[in-house]
Write a protein that binds this DNA or RNA. Sequence first.
DNA 1: TTGTATGCGTTATCAA
DNA 2: TTGATAACGCATACAA
Lengths: 328, 328
Amino acid sequence: MVTIQEVAARAGVSVGSVSRYLNGHQLKEQNMKKIKKAIDDLDYRENLFAKGLKSNQTLSIGVLMNNMQSVFSSTLIGQIEEEMDYHNYGILLNSYRNRPEMLEQKFDFLVDRHVDGLIAFEIENDWPVLARMENLEIPVISINTKLAYPNVDSIVVNNRESTKKIVKRIIQAGHQQIGIISAPQTASVAKDRLAGALEAVEEEGFPLENAEIYYGDYSQKTGYEGMRALIKRGIRTFFVTNYNMSLGALQYIFESGLKIGEDISFASYDYPGVSDIVYPQLTVVRQPVNQMGIMAVERMFERIRNPQLTGETFVLPNEILWRDSIKE
Amino acid sequence: MVTIQEVAARAGVSVGSVSRYLNGHQLKEQNMKKIKKAIDDLDYRENLFAKGLKSNQTLSIGVLMNNMQSVFSSTLIGQIEEEMDYHNYGILLNSYRNRPEMLEQKFDFLVDRHVDGLIAFEIENDWPVLARMENLEIPVISINTKLAYPNVDSIVVNNRESTKKIVKRIIQAGHQQIGIISAPQTASVAKDRLAGALEAVEEEGFPLENAEIYYGDYSQKTGYEGMRALIKRGIRTFFVTNYNMSLGALQYIFESGLKIGEDISFASYDYPGVSDIVYPQLTVVRQPVNQMGIMAVERMFERIRNPQLTGETFVLPNEILWRDSIKE
DNA sequence: TTGTATGCGTTATCAA
DNA sequence: TTGATAACGCATACAA
């Protein structure tokens, strides 16, 4: 391993000069040339351990994910990686696999590695790890949940409004019964989505007993079962609040032989993929995943550059693709 | 930041003792207790910069991905992350976004960060970065391509055999024409898959001119266009060598109103998802993605523990799900 | 078994 | 503008 000592020796200058050169200081033209040549000759590369030991910077940020299986998460991480690259920052990836009790350990792991910032996915306000975040001196960006700490930015989408809008439209189209496949009401995202649906029901004066809610667990399997249960009760109009469950729900529909847009009205949350390729294309709520990633990174560097900035909340709008899966 | 100096002072021992304690050495029971207490009291955490400066270890491995958008890649990275967690290792994530010319920079990035190992996805043998890998002193695991360097393990799947098997079956079922949607013959994975198909054609004595090949570019769009073109030429039996293109192909089929399993025979490479939920379920080749991730990590730690091991090639079998999309 | 002192590669302070 | 040198926090060789 080549050190700046060796570079200095070869260039005939002191280590101080080499260090300064490397950090963009101005020195005598002559010396800069010599140092550059020595660096090239020796193929010198800086030692980030030594650098970090002094500066406490790693030029990397930690990403704390809920899971890696979902399309949402993997798309987002892809976008984040791409943005980080422009800044020449690395990302240290961690997943707590939807298990809050793993979070503290993961959190420590990243803090021990002195990441310069932290992006965390779907951390709920009542989880124990939050206490740690509070007095963390690096910027934290929370994705998909709003966390009320001064050093935390929150980037969320308007799930409640989107769900409300789509359910209202369903009601206005004259459907008499509606089946909603929802997720456990522990996560705030799930709560928001269901709340939006119920607000629509209320505001439209739709009979509450005609809105049947089935609670799945995010799995494709429970989406399938939920759809079967609801169809057996004679319901033909559906809103599914999560992508993965919508896959299971669709599977049951396809197997049943019922036709979407004719026998069945269907809408759901979604990502690019199935909803586009089936015919008719599905009416869906689509989250601005890429935009969230871009925003998270931009904001991260704003805060790294300007440490006295404090946390804010940014709400991005979902897109609703009105297509042909709801019978009008 | 609490240092071992402070821990030593509080415990009334020397820094050496604290350091040894932290690294699992045996010392007087009494002292170990005192040190443990001091560490707890002060909430000491080790400084990985300082540690790395001495040991040149980071307790993290680098992952060099081709892209983050594909299901293959994101599933794999999820599995790798999970396995790494058991070893308390972090992963430094990087993507070269299918652009070989980005690779060298990404590679340097990881090497500069002193990752203890490297897992790389779909690196081709003729790419410039290979020269660097050759004299890298850390273990390298290549996923999906076989690289011939002594310090590189290769984990690949038997794409050629799987494709051959499935195309043979199609031919044996009596189909007179077959349309193949394939990818550019630059990547070795793509070459293997097409080669397998052509081997089947040859071995079965199927007329070569009745096997029509359409070259897409992995995009859903070209899958769609490919399917349209082939259907217009009257072909009704298809094999699509890549998941993403199969989505586009399916989209065209669904729009056309033709029925899979009746008017159309269809098989493709795939991941859990669409092929399961549509009806009839599709006959597909499914790669052992999770197993590949597990194997990559296991092998990585074998080699970290035992540095004199040299690279080997591991071939994992694809699974073929024989279902109802090919008319018999 | 323990303490002391040196060095890992870099940055930054102080003099020159 | 430059050089010499003292940190940064830890591991370890050597001495005790």
